[in-house]
């Protein structure tokens, strides 16, 4: 069988919108039992999809711990944790950033993952999977996004270290690293230049669709890819390989 998640219990943080919601819908159709964990109340959405929902701030260790207890109460186990909740920083130059900008991104994008792993692993059976949402901003710099970039780099570091430490329980930990994804977050004010730049520079010629991120998360969450561990999967439309001719011509114009 390929990609089936029949009866698997999955927690998706940030599951109420964007990439997370796409993941939730996909997992439901693959047969999983899903808990939508989100900062906002998703009970109506959960009812429609036949899931459970839980209101949580992933930066809050106690709340995340309660989320995992809730999941085990509801479904008896945790097979897959998708640490997807994330925040974006305001666009500003590094020289203009405050400590609080870095703290804001760090609390959710890094500690959200750490809190999720620490709270879920004691409830997981050997062979469980953890998938985190990082970003191509975790692999390279991005102008005016220093605090976001730093947090996404840290998310990859946490992923790799968790993979090394949890390997003896056969719990695999990986993350996905998309470029800009076609969600409300990418279209936030101030990001127009960034979006134009990415459309220009990505060899495939467009930004990433949430379904494409969800497919990668789904693959990493499945038992089929049992030997991928500690990886940061680049969903980059070719941009990590370099610049293609079309982009260079457009730049020259």
């Amino acid at each position: 069988m390929f990609f089936l998640l029949e009866n698997q219990v999955v927690v998706v943080t940030g599951g109420g919108s964007g990439i997370g919601l796409t993941v939730v819908k996909r997992f439901v159709s693959a047969g999983a039992r899903v808990v939508i964990a989100d900062l906002s109340d998703c009970s109506e959405l959960a009812r429609d999809l036949g899931c459970r929902s839980y209101v949580v701030d992933v930066a809050n260790e106690n709340q995340v711990s309660d989320l995992m207890s809730f999941t085990v109460e509801q479904y008896g186990a945790i097979d897959v944790l998708v640490n997807n909740a994330g925040v974006f920083s305001e666009y500003k130059k590094l020289m203009e950033t405050q400590t609080s900008d870095f703290q804001f991104c760090h609390d959710v994008n890094v500690m959200g993952i750490v809190n999720g792993i620490k709270a879920a692993v004691p409830h997981m059976n050997d062979g469980a999977r953890i998938v985190n949402t990082s970003s191509m901003a975790g692999k390279r710099g991005a102008v005016n996004l220093a605090s976001y970039v730093a947090s996404k780099h840290a998310a990859i570091g946490v992923t790799k270290t968790a993979a090394m430490e949890l390997g003896d329980r056969n719990i695999r930990v990986n993350c996905v690293c998309p470029t800009s994804v076609n969600t409300p977050m990418a279209h936030e004010e101030g990001g127009e230049t960034m979006l134009r730049y990415e459309k220009l520079m990505v060899p495939i010629g467009r930004i990433c669709e949430p379904e494409e991120v969800a497919a990668a998360i789904h693959f990493l969450a499945s038992e089929d890819c049992g030997f991928i561990n500690g990886q940061a999967i680049e969903l980059c439309g070719g941009s990590s390989a370099g610049t293609n001719e079309r982009a260079m011509q457009k730049l020259a114009e």
């Binding site: 790799k160 993979a163 090394m164 390997g167 695999r172 998309p178 060899p203 495939i204 990433c208 669709e209 494409e212 497919a215 990668a216 789904h218 693959f219 890819c225 030997f227 991928i228 561990n229 500690g230 990886q231 999967i233 680049e234 969903l235 980059c236 439309g237 070719g238 941009s239 990590s240 390989a241 370099g242």
Partner: peptide
Amino acid sequence: AGASYMTGVALPVAGGMAPGL
């Protein structure tokens, strides 16, 4: 088709082993 946004990537399938980590 699930990997439709992936190109030019070299993906380690190594269980967590240097140099893939």
